Simulated scan of single mutants.
Amino acid sequence: MKSILALFALLLSLPAAAAQLTIELDHASKTWQTADLLKHPQAQTVQIVDDVSYKRSMTYRAVPLAALLPGLKPANHLQAVALDGFAAELTAAPLLAKTGARAWLAVEDPAHPWPALAQGKPSAGPFYMVWTHPQAGHISPEQWPFQVSRIKQLQTVAERFPALLPDPKLAADDPVNLGFALFQKNCLACHRLNGAGDAQMGPDLNIPYNPTEYFGGDFLKRYIRDPQSLRHWPQAKMPAFAASVLPDNELDLLLGYLQHMAGRKQQP
């Protein structure tokens, strides 16, 4: 057992290796190598203040994500899939923006590897979606996927997973539908609901029980704001959703959607 742990520690300490990223769009598909991205004509050095994953300022060699998505339209939908099964659902519009909050693909140079995310863990590489001026677009932590291996164009979440949909009788601007949009942005990268979704990390949020059914008082809000304050364990991955990222009114809308879906359980 000790020898296995020693080997694992050695693997984590090895320099970053060159990697590849596949981008699959409906009209085109391309696999990028690390070296090609590092020398991309639009690659530049960017500084990220308050990096979501490293919790400090970081500097990366990065390519504007829009430059890697030719022909994509703002209304299109993408999914960024990470090595650990994290699957971030992303509306194309923010990714294509060239002002305000701007998305970049940070590329880890094997000759200059990034630091580990934590002791015993790998870095955020080989590819990491980062944002400059994220506050201008209310970018959530789930929109910073790291260890990305593939980006692919898909139908919208509502088209792919009807089991996530609120009651169709509700108006488009009903608070529950607004909460559904926030669920897609903030939760679906890690969680499924009614068995629907592509994520493989967190538990299903409706089967067998919805968290609104077993969190009393304001504990569910407190858990979303700071998960480690209620359930602390070293391998926890759920990020804290600060009010600057998920304002109180949006958190209430999100909880409204979850409470609504507690009455719409579907077995997968």
Rank of each mutant, 00 (worst) to 15 (best):
D36C: 01
N186P: 03
K169V: 09
A106H: 12
L182H: 07
A16Q: 11
M261T: 01
I139A: 05
H138N: 15
L253R: 13
A236M: 13
K98I: 00
Q42K: 14
Y223S: 11
V176A: 08
W114C: 03
A9F: 03
H232I: 00
L21G: 04
D226Y: 04
M201Q: 13
P239L: 02
R222N: 09
A111E: 10
V81C: 00
L246G: 05
R61G: 00
L246R: 09
L90V: 02
L170I: 10
P64C: 03
Q42I: 00
L37S: 09
D218H: 10
W32K: 01
L83A: 11
P64L: 07
P115S: 02
T99L: 01
A67T: 03
T59P: 00
N210K: 02
L164A: 05
T45C: 01
D174M: 08
L178I: 13
A111Q: 15
V63D: 07
A103N: 07
A103V: 11
Y214D: 02
T91S: 12
T156V: 13
A199K: 08
V49A: 14
A82Y: 00
T212M: 11
F180G: 01
D26L: 04
P126A: 06
I224F: 10
A17T: 13
A236N: 06
L65C: 09
Y257A: 04
P203D: 08
V130Y: 13
A158G: 07
H138I: 02
G71D: 05
M201P: 00
V81Y: 13
A87V: 14
V81K: 13
F180L: 12
I151A: 12
D109L: 08
W114E: 05
E250C: 00
P247Q: 11
L105C: 10
P15M: 03
P115Y: 06
D36V: 01
K30T: 13
P268G: 10
L220E: 02
Q79I: 14
L21T: 04
Q153K: 06
L68V: 09
P70V: 12
